[in-house]
Design a protein around this nucleic acid. Sequence first.
DNA 1: TTGCTCCTCACGTCACGTGAGGTGGC
DNA 2: TTGCTCCTCACGTCACGTGAGGTGGC
Lengths: 147, 147
Amino acid sequence: MSSLIDNPRTLRIGEVAERTGTTPRTIRYYEEIGLLPSPAGHEKGRHRTYGEADVQRLEELLRLRQLLGVTLEELKELAEREEARSVLRAEWQQARTVEQRRRILEQSLEHVGRQLELVRGRRDALAQLEQELVAKQERVTELLGEL
Amino acid sequence: MSSLIDNPRTLRIGEVAERTGTTPRTIRYYEEIGLLPSPAGHEKGRHRTYGEADVQRLEELLRLRQLLGVTLEELKELAEREEARSVLRAEWQQARTVEQRRRILEQSLEHVGRQLELVRGRRDALAQLEQELVAKQERVTELLGEL
DNA sequence: TTGCTCCTCACGTCACGTGAGGTGGC
DNA sequence: TTGCTCCTCACGTCACGTGAGGTGGC
C-alpha cells in the first residue's frame, strides 16, 4: 500500500534540478515551450512530481544542448525524432514483414549517424584546440628548463 | 605610396564577419561591451577598418566561446589575462633577473593549464557521448545483419 | 553618379534569472 | 503549526537579430 510502490513519481522539481545540474525555472521553461511533457497528473497551481525516467530524459537533453550547442528549437526536433523512434521500436516487435523491420532499423541508423556527425565535428575542433594549447605549454616549459 | 603598404588595415566589418563566421552586429556588440578594442582610428559614424591581427583575435575568441561555452564576461577576463601575458612577453625580453623571467613563464604555464583543463573536461564529455552513440549504432547494425 | 556596404539608434527575441506575493505538503 | 519548497505572474538580462532611416567610399 506504499505510495512509493503505487506511484514511483516521487521527485519534486528542485530535486530534479539539482540532480541534473540545472534550475527549476529551466525545467518549467522547457515544459512551457513543449520540449518537456507536462508531468503526468499535474494540475495548475499544484506541485509537479517526476520519476527517474524524467530525470534521464532531461539529463540527455541538457547534455546534447551543452555539448553540441544546439538551440532549443533544434533540440525539440531532435527529441521529437527520438520519440518517433521509440514508437517505432515498440512497433518493431510486431512488425510483420522483414521489409518493415529493415526500414525501421535503417531510419534508426540514419538518426544516430546524424548525431554522430555533429559530435565528431565538435570533437575534432576541440582536439585541434587542445593540440595548440599543448604546443604552447611545451614551448613555455622548454623556456623554463633553459633557465 | 600605396595605402596598402602604409596601412594594412584594409578589411571592412562585413569581410571580417564573413571570414570568422559571424555577423557585423556581433562584432559591434563585442566592441560595445569592451571584449574587442574599438578599431584604431575609428570615429563615430565612419567605417571601421580591420587588419589580419584583428581577424585572428576574433577567430580565437569565437572558438573559445563556441567550444567551451563560456559567457562573454568570462571570455573578457580570459582575454584580459591573455593581454597581460603578451605584455609580459614583451617585458620578458628585457627582464633582468632569472627570477623575473621564471615568474613570468610560470604565470603563462598556469594560464595555459587552466584552459587545458576546460578543454579536456569538454573533450571527455564528448568522448563519452560519442561512445554511447557508437554503441547504439552497433546494436542497430547487428539487428540489421540478422535480417 | 549609382550600388553596395556601412553607420547609429532602438525595438524584438531567445533562454532563461529574479523577485513578489501566495499556496502546498512532509 | 512551523518551515521549507513549491506555485504563477511578470519584469529583467544576456547575446545578439532585425528593421529604419541615413551616410560613406571604391
